[in-house]
């Protein structure tokens, strides 16, 4: 994580205490939301385990000896949930899926890429999209399957692609 650029708030001790003043808290939550998303974008990870998260540098700034406590983590994740950027894997809320881009946003990016590469009206495999040579320099290279499928479903709903039976391939229109 050497090259990740932490926001100034991360070096500001009170950032790790949920603020009592509503206005300030609003700013704080916003900063946390964008920090969580950009952190996951940087590490290209798509899920977050609450137990593990507590000792991750994301929520624990060792040099300040400040950490965001579980309650705080939940407060922020609930906020992200409202915005459609996370989803709980189960009801016990132990783990969540993180979408630093929503499926709709991913869908658009992928569609544009397919268009640029002249891949419309041909069938390409899911593997090709996220692991193929053609997508190596794209942000969705390495995108997890569940998220890819969801993004494509968004596109399908708009009539821009059709997912083949078995979820192995897709055809863009």
């Amino acid at each position: 994580m050497a090259d990740f650029e932490w926001p100034w708030q991360y070096k500001f001790p009170p950032f790790f205490t949920i603020q009592p003043n509503l206005e300030t808290r609003k700013k704080q939550l916003e900063a946390w939301c964008s920090l969580i998303l950009s952190y996951h974008r940087h590490t290209k990870s798509y899920s977050l385990n609450i137990t593990e998260a507590q000792s991750s540098p994301l929520f624990y700034n060792k040099s300040l000896s400040r950490k965001l406590h579980v309650d705080g983590i939940y407060t922020i994740l609930d906020e992200l949930n409202k915005k459609g950027h996370i989803e709980w894997k189960d009801k016990s809320k132990k783990e969540c899926l993180i979408m630093w881009r929503t499926p709709g946003e991913w869908g658009k990016t992928i569609y544009k890429w397919a268009d640029d590469k002249g891949m419309k009206n041909t069938v390409c495999t899911m593997y090709e999209i996220t692991n193929g040579e053609d997508s190596e320099d794209t942000e969705f290279h390495g995108l997890e399957n569940w998220l890819l499928l969801r993004s494509l479903k968004c596109l399908q709903a708009e009539g821009k692609c059709e997912i083949m039976a078995g979820n192995e391939g897709v055809k863009f229109f």
């Binding site: 500001f12 001790p13 009170p14 205490t17 003043n21």
Partner: peptide, 17 residues
């Protein structure tokens, strides 16, 4: 705090800052 000029930090060993 109410004016948004100050943030509270409850994790200092010497009490709220």
């Amino acid at each position: 705090v109410k004016q948004g000029l100050a943030w509270v930090d409850d994790q200092d060993s010497n009490g709220r800052k």
